[in-house]
Amino acid sequence: MRIRTALLAAVGLVLAVAPIWAHHSNAAQFDATKRTTLKGEITKVEWTNPHAYFYVSVKDATGKTVTWSLEGFPPNTLLRTGWSQKDLKQGDTVSVEGCLARDGSSIMLAREVTLGDGRKLYWGPAS
């Protein structure tokens, strides 16, 4: 029964997540095979449409600081799926997993965000 429930949940989530691409093609902009994890300090949060963004200041391998733009679901979707605007504050340190932009710019389609208190939430679709 548990397995059946898990399977149904998996199928349901696939169906549920798919149409979130409605606004534009993530596949055109982001490479689902190029995934990475960034850790840094939040510099700005935009609860805006058609996509929410937050920006993180990250030190690269050379010690240079780069500001990354992290794209996600529309803000209404985020609120409906467990996020609060209080969860992301300027100055917080977060870890973000997602896929990189095809054009090599510092934009990521963010998927899993690990907040300072250890909670993990999805900011955007898987790919």
Partner: peptide, 14 residues
């Protein structure tokens, strides 16, 4: 009709 939020809040929790 669709979208992750149609499944309720827990759908977004990792």
């Amino acid at each position: 009709g669709g979208g992750i939020s149609a499944r309720g809040a827990t759908a977004n929790v990792v």
